[in-house]
Design a protein around this nucleic acid. Structure first.
Length: 774
DNA sequence: CCGACTACTGTTTTT
DNA sequence: CAGTAGTCGG
């Protein structure tokens, strides 16, 4: 069985007892090693239920469990994402962390609404403190296991920006409200489990014993909470195997700590380390290219990548005029390769940095009648109509789920508007009850009209009836009755009585997902013994189970490499996959690396961008094409692009190809006559306070040569301001920009002036000039 | 209280 | 461009 393994692969497979760290480079056969290792564990007497494999994404979980099942001839071990695993634990022992068994999981839009409501109650302007931003700051803190209390203290110790000021006020209230409605957010799933394991030693040791062999994939992506969870379960039985690659750490922005790898070596001094660095996936040229790129990181985490694979085709860089041409060119090439019989559609993948670019490729491919599957941001479960129905189901399950209630109570409209809701909320606050409970007692709220009251009672009655029905376990009948009773499809019916087919299809798809769930749920579960601490108690299908599935899975999971279609996805989503032919698109400054990563000025986020490109490159098995455009439409504005700074780093392994009509996207050299034209246009535009129609490379160069910019109180530029930039103000003279905030249309700029040392803040209005990128 | 219209603003990546 | 928050007339 282990005949085809290399020495280091075999070392990892044959290691049975004790902690093991596998440093696995891309394409080094990691999954193979893990599955063989599991089989080895079983041979050595481990029971399947003692093995727990934790992954980061559903996709990875599914793939691993399929491969294990195949190798072991149908034997199943527990493979789960962190979030799902935690959800199961909480479902089993909710009272340990003060939850009720029917708790619901909030999605991101619920979280944002809660933050928005809190900001409002605190009289903080949501246009200044953007709810999404506040939320992500809270989430980041919680990922680092910083409590609201600690956050407040930190805030008081060192003066911070206005965002922090809002966050420290919102933070505790956010936690309170989420808890109050018997719900959890994504972070809570992990955090509650950390608390549980910390405070309940008995439970901890039982779980430690139950899961004697724990495997963690993509260990570099674990955050502090995940680290703690794994730690806690690997104290008495230290058979913890983690696999990771610091060079593929691309989730730093989300609290991932690649340093957990180093921590592992510290926590388990007796650990064994195996390095897998031979690449079996890609051609030698692709491997060289990847290796070259990653070596530019301050601390590349490996020796050189090696491979015995043949050299293969050159890695190409194709330059196109604009985004449409890029998408079209790729589509055309794919079509030709398929039509000539050399390739099939499923061989191809197209990667991009931001989801916003997916459309371009989607339309180009469909123009060429090329089938494609998109692992895009808009998952099935995120569509409005599906989320509506899910919110209804959540409320049916958990009547304290205020977030769900707020979403559905007037949808379809039943005459319960803002004012009524305000009164209802007030009553609920006063009585310390949920909004649903308040609605049931609406007769006691004198300010509510009789009509409104009647509507409220109709609503609560419906929920109660459906709740009763849901006790039977089956989800589909509840959902079907709900849709019928609220005549949900009518909501999407146009005036002329035509039904929105897409939405209707989604509704039916949800119903059929529920049916499928109902029939599949029963055989999903592994039956363990029935002691108090058994995790796998046999479970009937339940509304809860269905909701968990709906909330914790995403569209990216449904990507099927065998589907006979070209795959479109973000670079992030590509991790862990491989394709014979890969296009990495938009190799432009501001996109790869992303503008924001550059603006942060933090070398580590810049390096994360480099790792992201590294991940993308190493997905390719045979044919890798990087593409770039000369101009790109962004936010409805056309902008000339600048080449990605990563390209020069791999220049020697690239073969450049320019489309016939392409002008090179680069800054013009000094003395270029285009520079002179640009100067004139720039000045004319400035005088007329107009925006130039098109920013050319020459204009960019021209602006770069103007280090000083005038600042007045009412007119400022937005984007061109960067921290450290020198500016001149008619009244205060020369100064240096110390802070910039705001978006592309409005911004505030804080400047410290040389003469007086004073600091002034300017509110920028719409800028007469185009912002320059980067 | 509802829906239609307008104005404004934003865009990383995801469990 | 496209999503949404906010305003206004019915």
């Amino acid at each position: 069985m282990t005949v085809n393994l290399t020495d280091s692969q075999r070392a990892a497979v044959e290691h049975v007892e004790g902690p093991l760290l596998v440093l696995a480079g891309p394409g080094s056969g990691k999954t193979r090693v893990i599955t063989h290792r599991i089989s080895r564990l079983l041979q050595h007497g481990a029971k399947p239920e003692q093995i727990l494999a934790l992954t980061f994404t559903n996709k990875a979980a599914r793939e691993m469990s399929e491969r294990v099942e195949k190798l072991l001839g149908g034997l199943r071990v527990r493979v789960s994402t962190f979030h799902r695993f935690c959800s199961r634990l909480l479902r089993r022992w909710p009272e340990r962390v003060g939850l009720k068994e029917n708790f619901t999981i909030l999605d991101q839009s619920d979280q944002t609404s809660i933050v928005r409501a809190i900001l409002k109650d605190l009289n903080l302007d949501p246009s200044v403190h953007e709810p999404g931003r506040v939320l992500s700051r809270i989430s980041r803190a919680r990922n680092d296991m910083i409590t609201s209390e600690q956050f407040r203290r930190q805030y008081e110790q060192r003066a911070s920006g206005p965002l922090e000021a809002a966050v420290y006020q919102v933070f505790p209230e956010y936690e309170r409200r989420v808890r109050e409605q018997n719900s959890v957010d994504f972070d809570d799933l992990l955090l509650h489990v950390v608390t549980m394991l910390q405070e309940e030693e008995e439970l901890r040791s039982v779980l430690d014993e139950q899961f004697r062999y724990i495997l963690v994939d993509e260990y570099q992506d674990t955050n502090l909470a995940q680290y703690r969870i794994v730690q806690a379960m690997s104290q008495d039985y230290r058979n913890l195997c983690v696999t990771g690659d610091p060079d593929q750490s691309i989730y730093g922005w989300r609290g991932a700590r690649p340093a957990n790898i180093t921590a592992f070596e510290r926590d388990y001094p007796e650990r064994q380390v195996v390095t897998l660095d031979q690449n079996f996936r890609s051609t030698a040229r692709i491997v060289t290219c990847a290796d070259q790129l990653i070596s530019f990181n301050r601390r590349p985490h490996r020796g050189r990548l090696v491979t015995d694979n043949p050299e293969g085709e050159p890695v190409r860089l194709r330059v196109f005029e604009h985004g449409d041409a890029e998408a079209n060119g790729i589509a055309l090439e794919i079509r030709e390769l398929v039509e000539s019989g050399q390739r099939q559609y499923s061989d191809f993948a197209i990667f991009y940095r931001v989801n916003a670019l997916s459309r371009l490729f989607e339309t180009a491919l469909s123009r060429h009648e090329i089938p494609c599957q998109i692992a895009a941001g808009y998952s099935f479960f995120e569509r409005a109509e599906v989320r509506d129905l899910i919110a209804w189901l959540r409320l049916i399950e958990n009547q304290s789920d205020n977030a769900a209630l707020e979403r559905v109570i007037n949808r379809p409209a039943r005459g319960i508007g803002n004012t009524s809701m305000l009164r209802l909320r007030n009553f609920a606050d006063r009585e310390k009850i949920s909004i649903f409970a308040a609605a049931e007692r609406c007769a006691q709220i004198p300010s509510l009209s009789a009509r409104c009251c009647k509507a409220l009672l109709g609503f609560t009655d419906l929920i109660n009836r459906l709740h009763e029905q849901s006790a039977a376990g089956q989800v589909a009948p509840v959902l079907e009755r709900l849709i019928a009773e609220i005549d949900y499809l009518a909501l999407w019916r146009e005036v002329d009585d035509e039904v929105d087919v897409d939405r209707e299809a989604n509704v039916y798809e949800l119903v059929s997902a529920a049916r499928q769930y109902d029939s599949a749920a029963e055989d999903l579960l592994i039956v363990g013994d029935s002691s108090e601490y058994t995790l796998e108690h046999p479970e009937k299908p339940s509304l809860q189970g269905f909701l968990e599935m709906a909330t914790l899975s995403s569209e990216a999971d449904s990507i099927d490499p065998e589907k006979g279609a070209v795959t479109l996805m973000t670079l992030h989503a590509s991790k862990g996959l491989e394709f014979p032919c890969v296009y990495i698109t938009g190799l432009e400054s501001g996109l790869i690396p992303h503008e924001r990563a550059v603006r942060e000025g933090d070398p580590s986020s810049f390096e994360e961008e480099r790792r992201l490109l590294f991940v993308g490159i190493t997905r390719a098995m045979q044919k890798l094409t990087l593409t770039q455009t000369s101009e790109r439409v962004f936010r409805g504005m056309r902008r000339t692009t600048i080449s990605s700074p990563f390209l020069p780093e791999i220049a020697s392994s690239l073969q450049r190809e320019f489309s016939s009509s392409t002008v090179r996207a680069a800054l013009p050299a000094a003395g270029d006559q285009r520079l002179e034209q640009a100067r004139k246009r720039f000045e004319a535009a400035q005088q007329n306070r107009e925006r130039p129609l098109l920013m050319t490379g020459a204009q960019l160069a021209f602006q770069r040569q103007q280090p000083e910019t005038d600042v007045t109180d009412d007119t400022t530029q937005t984007h061109p301001f960067e921290i450290g930039m020198s500016v001149r103000h008619p009244r205060y003279g020369r100064g240096e920009v110390v802070e910039v905030s705001g978006g592309s249309h409005r911004a505030t700029v804080t400047v410290q002036f040389e003469n007086t040392g004073e600091v002034h803040t300017f509110v920028a209005s719409r800028c007469p000039l185009q912002p320059i990128g980067g």
